[in-house]
Each structure stands twice: as C-alpha cells, then as structure tokens.
Design a protein around this nucleic acid. Structure first.
Lengths: 210, 210
DNA sequence: TGTGGCGTTAACAAAATTGTTAAACAAAAT
DNA sequence: ATTTTGTTTAACAATTTTGTTAACGCCACA
C-alpha cells in the first residue's frame, strides 16, 4: 500500500466524516462525499467496494474512538467527581467535532435493527458499570442525593449530547454565531456538572476545544 | 372533497408519521410509506403532488401540534413548578408517540439551512420567554439555585428529549422490552423534575401515556 | 341507463444514485 | 527504456426512487 493510496483513502474517510458526522448531512451521496474530498467518485468504490461498506468502516472507527475515550475517562482510581468531570469533558469535546454522530448511530440502528447489539450493548453496558459502585458509595456517604445509577447515567448522557445534536435549533433560538455557540457549550460543561451534582466542579478540570 | 378522499389523505399522513416520526425510518421512500398505509404509491402524488410537499405538510402539522401543546403547558397563572411539570409531561408524552420527530427536524434543518428560521425561531424563542420571569422570581426568593434561563431550558429540553431519541440504544443497554422502556420513561418524568429542581414534584401531576 | 367526476390502479417515463469497466496515467522496479 | 504495479479517470450499466399518464371502476345524479 503506497503512501499516495493510504493518503487518499484516509482523505475520503475524513471528509465523509466531516460531511455526515459534523455537517449532519446524514444521507450524503457518494457523489457528495467525493466532491467534499475533491476526488473522483469511483475511488470510493475502489477503496471501499460499496457505499455501505465504507459506512460500516466509518461507523466502527468513530465508535471505537469514542468508546476508548469514554472508557478511559471513567477508569482508574480517580475520585468519582473527577471521573464524571472527565466524562463530560470528553463527550462534549467529541460532540463539538462530530455533533451528529449519535444521530447517525440511531438512524443506522433503526435502518438495521439486527446490528443493534453490535453497536452499543457491550460498550455502553460497561459504561454504567464503570461508575455504579462509586456512585452508590457516594450516596451511602451522603455526598450525593439518592438516584439509581441508570437514571444518573441517562441524565448525564442527555445533558452532554442533546445540546450538540440540537445545535442548529439552539443556535437560532439564542441568535448565536458558531463562535458564540462553542463558547456556550464550553461553559455548559460546568453547568452540566452543577446540574448533576448540585454543586460546583473541583477546579478547572475542563479542557478547551481542540 | 368526499369522505373517502379525506380518509385516504389522512391515512397516508398518519402512516407516514408512524414510519418516520415513530419508527425512526427517517428516509422512508414513497413506496415504503404507501406500503405502510396499504395504498397505491401513486396516491401519494395524487394527494400531495410530490414527496417533498408531503414532507413539508407532515412537518408543519407535527410542529404546530407540538408548539400548541408546549405553549399551553407553560401559559396561564399556574405556579412555576406546575408549569414545568406540565411541560415535562407534555414533551415526554409527545416523545413517546413520536420519538424521532426532533431527529427529523434536525436532519431537515441540515439539509435545508434556509428553512431554519421557519422551524423554530419564533416558537422556541417564545418558550424561553414564557418562563424567564417566573424563573428569575424563584431564584430571587431562594426557591431555586441560581441558573440562567437559557441553561435551565436547555437542561429541561435535553433531559426530556434525549432518552426518547436514544430509545434503541437505551433499550439495549438495560435489556428492556418496549413495555419496560415505556415504564422507565414514565418514571423518568419524576426523575427529570427532581434533577432540575433538586426536590420532589408537587403531587401526581404526571399523566400516563395515551 | 348512462354520463361525469372522483378515487384508484398499473404501466410507463424520468431522474437520481450506485456500481462496473476499460483505458489513461504515474511511479517504481527491472 | 520498458515493464509492472497500483492509482485515477471518464464513460457506461444497473438499480433505485420519484414522477406521470392513461385507463378502470365506482358512485351520485341527471
């Protein structure tokens, strides 16, 4: 596999992700993807055989990246609040670059219900389990209002993901530019923490966007 | 317009909504819609001229229904918490029947950015304004932790909508049947209230699903 | 009874999208 | 220099999806 080849293949995947996961053009045609990458449409078939196979690769890659980052944010011997702060940071940052990724995954599941388990079961089940013990300990110690781990996680996921997903709507509501919207989201990391815990986050645990 | 005609037209719209907003088949073809309604595909063109025009009608109808219900839930002289409880109730119930409606709206906005303002601007801007004064009064009276109206609203919207939208994922995570999932969501109405206010809702303000 | 309008249908046409192929091209190896 | 290998392209073919049309059936009503 020559350098040029690897480059082109990567370019196509990259631009397809931009078009679909970033710009939210969920059903981009092969022509539109080729245009975005500035290459001939036939190359998509040369490298990926078919549109569908390319999609599967895109999905798997993005899924793995997210899975890895999320799992890491919730692993190790860190204190509970630090883990959750990391999680918020990671998910919001990912969402800032690929706001429509979740949207895409959901659409895919609806179109191919058989692949459902392939997508999330293993990974997400683990996510809840990564925090369950610590969460219950916090509650026992009176440091957190009692709440089932499932609800806590759903709250967290909702607060992190929805504002990214609903970007065009929220932007219009508040009459924001892209720039202002990103500022708003960065601020929201703290707001999410406060909403979930009822108190301020430790220190400046949140990173800025890449 | 004869009775049969009105019936068929309504049937097509109804079934299209089921397919797209309820089953999440976002890019249903005219054939699939016709099949769902059990009619000849040509009737879609007979009644709506083109697929696109039908979509516009579906969108407008669903949007108006939601707008009306949401606005009503937040209007009148009711106390703040009652309004918010009503809002949660309405949005979650709507989401139970049309979980992918928001998803669809977002996709549409991305495909046709020019229509953006048509969709939400007027309606949603009003939504925030419907609660701003009362929210600020609550904070002033020490009945609610200080929070900007925008953030409060985004929290609320996120917590209400995301779990519906992510139905297939969440169902898989917790290994739920459809039945169990609906129970979970009904329970969540209370959870959302508690998350947002940090305390229990008034009484049994929440209705069961229709 | 038969005529006209309306809803419905199947068959066809057009457009959009995906997939294939053969030839042109470039770079490296012989 | 020539072959070889791998990349890119334009042109074509196949498929899918949308849109159109002409004919059929049905019912109300003259």
């Amino acid at each position: 596999m020559s350098s040029a080849s690897a480059q082109t293949e990567e370019l196509i995947k990259e631009k397809a992700k931009v078009l679909i996961f970033q710009k939210g053009y969920l059903n981009a045609t092969t022509q539109e993807i080729a245009d975005e990458a500035g290459v001939n449409r036939a190359l998509i078939h040369y490298y990926f055989r078919s549109r569908e196979q390319m999609m599967e690769i895109l999905l798997e890659e993005a899924l793995n990246e997210k899975k890895m980052k999320v799992t890491e944010s919730l692993s190790g011997n860190k204190p509970f609040r630090e883990k959750i702060a990391n999680y918020i940071d990671v998910v919001v940052n990912l969402g800032l670059t690929y706001p429509y990724f979740t949207n895409f995954v959901i659409s895919e599941i609806n179109r191919h219900p058989d692949k459902e388990k392939l997508f999330c079961s293993k990974h997400k089940a683990k996510t809840v389990d990564l925090i369950r013990d610590q969460l219950e300990a916090e509650i026992k110690n009176g440091k957190l209002a009692p709440i089932p781990a499932e609800d806590f996680m759903v709250n967290l996921v909702s607060l992190c993901n929805y504002p990214l997903l609903a970007k065009p709507i929220l932007k219009t509501i508040h009459g924001m530019t892209d720039e202002a919207y990103y500022d708003f989201l960065r601020e929201r990391k703290r707001t999410i923490f406060i909403t979930v815990f009822g108190e301020e986050p430790p220190q400046s645990v949140f990173t800025s966007v890449n």
